[in-house]
Computed example of a mutant assay.
Amino acid sequence: MTRGLQMNDVTKYYAEGSNRIAALDHVTLSVEPGEFVAVVGPSGSGKSTFLSIAGAMLEASEGEVKLNGHTLSTLTAKELSNIRLQEIGFIMQSSNLVPYLNVLDQLLIVKRMSSTVTREDKQLATKLLEELGLGAKLTSLPEELSGGEKQRTAIARALINNPNVILADEPTASLDTKRAHEVVSLIAQEVKSRQKAAIMVTHDERMLEYCDKVYRMEDGKLSLFPLKDIYK
């Protein structure tokens, strides 16, 4: 079974009056396990639509999306829900932590969504948080964390179900330069060590040095952006 994420000739249309607008226009992309890919581009270029389709939250109008060997268009709503929970780890612009849950429970609530929480789950969550430098923050609430600590908690939460694909939407949007580098380097490290296929949508060109490939989205079209052009 092919791992990672494959999008083949994917198009997404929206109706605008009597016209049909292509928010995504024949996008083809493959991200393999252990590969960290960035997608850059101006606002309104189709990045959000792209990420929603890659994350099984939006259905493509045309083309095929395969996630960890599953062809998404053939799955039921329940199967797609399970894919989102078990196969994809989401890291959003803001950490989206639950205000009244401590750091450890931020991870365990993901486990509760699919099953009861076991002692092994708690041990795994604790180990994951310790690996990300949050071992002393297990009982802290979100309001007691720095911006970088919140995003590290969000990274741990994205990894707790051992998903095969990581999708990060502007993960450095609310961080200063130091914290931004800290967070993206951690994502890159986890992608490599755990062999995840990862896509980061970003406006932050400072973070592209951590990525294996960079794509540019413009007017719904995706093109590979040579890394040598970024670092001229």
Rank of each mutant, 00 (worst) to 15 (best):
L186W: 10
L75W: 03
L75N: 05
D229I: 11
M200S: 01
K150L: 05
A154I: 06
E35N: 03
T2L: 13
M57N: 10
K122A: 09
G133S: 05
A168Q: 08
L29H: 03
E32T: 12
A15C: 08
I21P: 00
E190F: 04
G135V: 12
V27Y: 01
H70D: 15
G55S: 01
K78E: 13
E190D: 00
L80I: 08
V31I: 06
Q86L: 09
Y14V: 09
F225N: 06
V98M: 10
Y14P: 03
T118R: 03
Q123D: 14
K232G: 12
Q123S: 14
K47D: 02
V214F: 02
P42Q: 13
K66F: 14
T116C: 11
Q195N: 14
L222I: 08
L208I: 04
L132D: 06
S185N: 12
L159H: 11
S115H: 15
A197V: 02
I83G: 00
Q93F: 03
L175Q: 07
L85M: 12
S45R: 01
I53D: 01
A198P: 08
T126H: 02
Y100W: 06
I21D: 05
A15T: 14
L167A: 00
N96D: 14
A154R: 10
K66I: 15
K66W: 13
I166N: 04
A60Q: 13
L145R: 04
G89Y: 09
I199G: 02
K178V: 10
G148R: 08
S115D: 14
G55D: 00
E218N: 15
A198S: 09
G44H: 10
L72T: 07
H181N: 15
A158D: 01
A154Y: 11
S18D: 13
I53W: 00
E79L: 01
Q6N: 13
A188Y: 08
L208W: 02
S146Y: 11
T71H: 12
I109H: 05
P99V: 05
L129H: 06
T139N: 14
M92A: 10
M7H: 03
K137A: 14
L67S: 04
V103T: 15
M113E: 14
R179S: 15
E209F: 08
E205N: 10
Y215K: 01
T139R: 13
S185P: 08
K111C: 12
T116K: 15
N82Q: 14
I83W: 00
G148P: 09
L134D: 04
I21M: 08
A60F: 06
D176V: 05
I91L: 07
V191R: 03
L134W: 02
P42M: 05
A158V: 00
P163Y: 13
S18A: 14
G63L: 03
I21C: 07
K232V: 08
L134G: 01
K196E: 00
K47L: 04
I160H: 07
S94K: 12
D176W: 06
V39F: 05
I155P: 00
V37A: 11
E130D: 10
S48D: 05
M57T: 03
T116I: 09
Q106M: 09
A158E: 00
V165Y: 09
E205Y: 13
R216P: 02
E170I: 01
Y231F: 15
